[in-house]
Design a protein around this nucleic acid. Structure first.
Lengths: 196, 196
DNA sequence: CAGGTATCAGGTCAACTGTCCCGGACTCTT
DNA sequence: AAGAGTCCGGGACAGTTGACCTGATACCTG
């Protein structure tokens, strides 16, 4: 086994845990399977993390930050409002279709966090960050394009966040990706109608 | 212990499992905790169900049917379209606020079903039934009120299902129930705009 | 009331999981 | 090169969990 500073080992174990959890599900991922996925012995795990919970906490924050950056990346301002919304949805949707297990895992971890005493704040943080990402984009667009919103920014941001969340979950359960792009088009038109 | 035909015992155990899972979470619910919740000994459990999986299957189908009937109950046709949509959302939302653990449990079980080999169909069935419930209501309204839809029924139904799903999940994570009624109003207006 | 069936209680078992311990090996400083 | 600090490996342990088994008990049929 290659020797490695524990900070880097922690990152490696976190990444291995994400792979194992995405593959097997959170419930079926054990400290042993994580260690095996990382290619280290079990004791290394407990050398780097005080407990499995500490590792899960690291996994959640890491994955949340990744997910939020996916949203931020997708939501780049374009020439027109409709174009921005449509391109944003498309970019996000492409990511969902390309990495369904990753999105599935975020839902699982959200519920894990809600159930685990002392972890609720991690679930909330995730959803708050989503909302903030949307709100920031809206504010930015409003300034750049001199838009007038028919609804408060916070309402619109939460609507978008909940919308994409629900669509993603439905896609993960039902599949049939094509059917959902029609819905995204409808929503895009709706958003465009909410601004002046 | 009162003697009881096994069919009724199964119902009793299913109900006890739902209570235990809603309280403790699916992952932390064991055969022992279910038996204790039902007030029977562990052996009764394995007398009535071949395995824990068989019980979980019973729980999922029972809860799915309950959830769908909640949706159907909420979506009763009223005088006008907007009134129908608004009242439907309100009724559904009241149910979510009154029984958050029950809704939480359905999300947990959906993911459990998606992860458990041979159970995927139960997750899909749940979401298909939601979609069908919405589609039926839309068809019915269209006939009664002579509406003309701007989008296909299937698109609208899936949109509504995903929408409520996402809003519910966001509420369960973030709380703050008041903030979401504004969003439901926005969506209501959107739906009203989609018909002629 | 006898015999058979349905139901229950407690104990047992093997497998798995998180955690920990102890000895050894590597690395860097002095 | 020697020692301290850091990292790694294998094994062990206690607790939990799903599953099962053997008797005992209640109910019903004839």
């Amino acid at each position: 086994m290659a020797r490695m500073p524990s900070a880097e080992r922690r990152r490696q174990l976190t990444a291995a845990a994400i792979r194992a959890m995405a593959r097997d599900g959170v419930a079926k991922t054990t400290t042993r399977s994580i260690a095996a996925e990382a290619g280290v012995s079990l004791s290394v795990f407990h050398y780097c993390f005080d407990s499995k919970q500490a590792l899960v906490e690291s996994v959640i924050t890491t994955l949340t930050d990744q997910s939020v950056s996916v949203v931020r990346e997708a939501l780049r301002p374009r020439d027109s409002l409709e174009e921005t919304v449509a391109a944003g949805f498309r970019a996000y949707w492409d990511h969902v279709r390309a990495h369904p297990e990753a999105h599935m895992l975020t839902y699982e971890l959200t519920q894990y966090a809600l159930r685990e005493p002392g972890f609720e704040h991690l679930a909330r943080r995730q959803y708050e960050l989503y909302g903030e990402a949307y709100a920031e984009l809206i504010e930015q667009l409003r300034g750049d394009m001199d838009l007038e919103l028919g609804v408060p920014v916070s309402v619109l941001a939460r609507y978008l966040a909940a919308m994409t969340d629900g669509l993603t979950l439905n896609y993960l359960v039902l599949g049939d990706a094509a059917a959902w792009s029609d819905i995204l088009d409808t929503v895009t038109a709706h958003i465009a109608g909410l601004v002046r």
